[in-house]
């Protein structure tokens, strides 16, 4: 393992532990939503982590199509796999939060629907990728697909602005019973959210993707070794 990757891995694990501490203990309990509001410190950063990963995947796709090194395809694949895991965390934690707060696991709200579509799109990426035998063709075609797929990420991000009827909160809302206006429900939201957001935006996806990239490298060298052994 390269030294830098080892350092990154350690930093990510420590950072994750620190943001968990901040979110679970340092921030105050939301007096309105109760303890479950703390899921938010994972839920929202996980989406932005997926955004980084899918964004890097888009970037890898563009580089492949621009005729750059074939290694960019490995980056795209790593981005899809890690991003899909993050998007899944985003969906799951959202559903678990919604159960006590909205009284339902799932609702066909525009934002939730588009997030689910995003997940399906990248799940389809992995399936489609497995359908190609020719690696060179696969590289080009999957790059095309990763560019198309990123449209669903953008739609998920901007759908609140396009379709304002969403019930998905921007941040903790006002009390349903409090007719006199809103109030400070939680203390230390930004204290817990900002570091977590930063971690999921940068360290988490980069470290995990690097590990995935190395795995793909090794897989390729295995395939080469197999071919060599067969031809001998």
């Amino acid at each position: 393992m390269p030294r830098l990757l080892r350092a990154l891995t350690i930093a990510t694990v420590l950072g994750f532990a620190a943001t968990l501490y901040l979110g679970l203990f340092a921030a105050g309990t939301d007096i309105q939503q109760g303890a479950v509001q703390r899921i938010f410190y994972i839920h929202m950063p996980a989406f932005f982590g997926a955004f980084t990963a899918f964004g890097l995947s888009l970037f890898g796709g563009i580089m492949v199509l621009a005729g750059k090194s074939a290694d960019w395809d490995k980056l795209a694949l790593a981005g899809v796999e890690v991003g899909l895991a993050f998007a899944l965390i985003n969906l799951l934690t959202g559903a678990i939060w919604a159960r006590p707060i909205w009284n339902t696991w799932w609702t066909w709200d525009p934002r939730l629907t588009s997030a689910a579509i995003m997940c399906l799109t990248y799940a389809a990426y992995l399936m489609l990728r497995a359908g190609f035998d020719d690696t060179e063709r696969r590289r080009t075609f999957m790059s095309v697909y990763s560019i198309l797929g990123f449209v669903t990420v953008l739609i998920t991000l901007f759908i609140i602005r396009i379709v304002p009827e969403t019930i998905h909160p921007v941040i903790v809302g006002a009390s349903p019973q409090n007719a006199q206006g809103s109030f400070e429900a939680t203390s230390g939201v930004m204290l817990a959210l900002a570091p977590s957001l930063l971690l999921w935006l940068t360290l988490m996806p980069i470290t995990l993707m690097w590990h995935r990239y190395r795995l793909e490298d090794r897989l390729e060298s295995l395939n080469r070794a197999k071919l060599k052994a067969l031809s001998e």
């Binding site: 309990t29 939301d30 007096i31 309105q32 939503q33 109760g34 303890a35 479950v36 703390r38 899921i39 994972i42 839920h43 996980a46 895991a85 899944l88 965390i89 799951l92 934690t93 678990i96 939060w97 159960r99 006590p100 009390s175 019973q177 409090n178 007719a179 006199q180």
Partner: peptide
């Protein structure tokens, strides 16, 4: 009267959410 409310106890759901996140990772 109207402003009174009890903070709900839903720490089980928090635990479930954390478990889901950890499981996927």
């Amino acid at each position: 009267l109207l402003g009174f409310f009890v903070t709900p106890d839903n720490s089980l759901y928090l635990a479930l959410g954390l478990a889901a996140a950890f499981a996927v990772l």
